[in-house]
Amino acid sequence: MKNFNGTVLFLNRADINTDEIIPARYLTEISKEALKPYLFEEIHLDGFDPRRDLAGKKIIITRSNFGCGSSREHAPWALEVNGIKLVIAASFARIFRQNMFNCGMLAVELPPARIDHLFEEFASHKTTITTDLARNRFTVAGAGKQEEVPFSLPAFDRALIQVGGWVEYADARY
């Protein structure tokens, strides 16, 4: 199973689409590693500079409908080759969310009020998250404080991240 701990990148906008995560002009790449420099190149978010703000980040916290638009799995791949394997959002687009779990990555929905709270309390500080999958808890730490955040993870999604993804799961069963 992948590691879901690390430093948080806050992306304060709803409806961040997969063209923003990785533009189509880079879909001619056949290796996932080649996508690395282009993550968030087209993001429409004032004050965000991918080169400066992505460094060292392992987790994204964002608003609703993250990953809408194109079905390109290059979006989770571009996140993963940059070290980001967990996205926490108020909601996800269906295909993006499925692609995350299919790759053995974690996409967790939290209630919008909880997302608001995390932005208010932590977004302007260096923040880290430790994921406890056994207890369904994130430990969010930053700005001199620490909070436990419960989450739910449907059984099928949990099974996918435990075996490493949908190819492994389906190959063993179907």
Binding site: S71, R72, E73, P76, I95, Q98, N99, N102, C103, G165, W166, V167, A170, D171, Y174
Partner: peptide
């Protein structure tokens, strides 16, 4: 339905 590459891969195989 549109799907990602992993769903497509399993679709092709299974």
């Amino acid at each position: 339905a549109g799907v990602g590459t992993t769903d497509l891969e399993v679709g092709i195989l299974k």
